[in-house]
């Protein structure tokens, strides 16, 4: 594997609880791409959830248990990679705040270290491995929804679209009002369902307007929300996580 951009790099996969449970194809795709690029991928089995559903609903004490588990599970890794902007943002932006509330200085230190080593999948590919062409083949018309946490909290910028543009056969079409939230928002989607649905409906309409075959995002919860409306409305557009697009090769298509 010498000569590959990821040769010799040991990477801890943070699958995220949602993807682990509901969309396992996404973390599998991350494994596929990272191994194709020469990385040694490990899945620390103690991992669960970043805790954002608890944090963002105001249940800080319940979330602290997740933080403790998270820093324990990912101790000792230099590269922690997750296919979710919001989970990465939670680890980076909220874990230290939660740890501070406990008054446990060791936990604060551990949370700071984990936060500093946690990257979104696209950041790891572009910034650490220095690649945009990962050898993928996806002969479809796609549009990209830049999820709020990726775009505004992680500042992923053009990393995701650079990766998509390097995919062989892929036609990327712009999404109108792309920067607007899809309306998922975690428990927002069930606490204020009417507004959430109004936002998701507008997002789905814009997706359909593009004429794309697939709407791509780096966040499965957004895709679940947008896809839920698309499917209910009988739209032909399908949802797919960015990692799964990047994992797809000519061999898969054959």
């Amino acid at each position: 594997m010498l000569g590959l951009p990821g040769a010799g790099l040991r990477v801890a996969l943070f699958a995220t609880c949602i993807a682990d449970t509901l969309t396992p194809d996404t973390p599998k795709a991350v494994v596929t791409v990272l191994e194709r690029l020469g990385c040694v991928v490990e899945f620390p089995p103690g991992q669960t959830c970043c805790g954002q559903i608890m944090t963002n609903t105001g249940y800080f004490d319940a979330a602290v248990a997740s933080v403790r588990n998270h820093v324990r599970s990912f101790a000792g890794y230099d590269h922690i990679v997750a296919p979710s902007g919001s989970c990465v943002a939670s680890v980076r932006d909220q874990h230290v705040m939660l740890a501070r509330r406990t008054g446990d200085a060791r936990l604060v230190e551990q949370a700071s270290q984990t936060a500093a080593r946690t990257l979104d999948f696209t950041e790891f590919l572009v910034d650490v491995l220095g690649v945009t062409d990962v050898g993928a083949y996806f002969p479809h018309r796609v549009t990209y929804h830049p999820s709020c946490h990726g775009a505004r909290f992680l500042r992923l910028g053009d990393r995701p679209t650079r990766l998509l543009q390097a995919v062989e056969g892929l036609e990327l079409v712009p999404l109108p009002a792309a920067d607007q939230c899809c309306g998922f928002g975690g428990t927002f989607s069930i606490k204020i369902p009417d507004v959430s649905i109004a936002m998701a409906t507008d997002k789905a309409r814009h997706v359909v307007e593009t004429g794309a075959d697939f709407v791509v995002a780096g966040e499965n919860s957004c895709l679940m929300n947008i896809g839920g409306v698309l499917h209910r409305d009988g739209a032909a557009v399908r949802t797919v996580h960015l990692a799964e697009v990047l994992a797809h090769t000519r061999a898969d298509a054959a």
Partner: peptide
């Protein structure tokens, strides 16, 4: 509240954790 206007995918047959193991 979710299903009022949105469908949801049924859980897959195998979790990532189980696949990895």
């Amino acid at each position: 509240r979710w299903l009022r206007a949105r469908d949801v995918d049924a859980p897959p047959a195998q979790t990532f954790r189980a696949w990895w193991a």
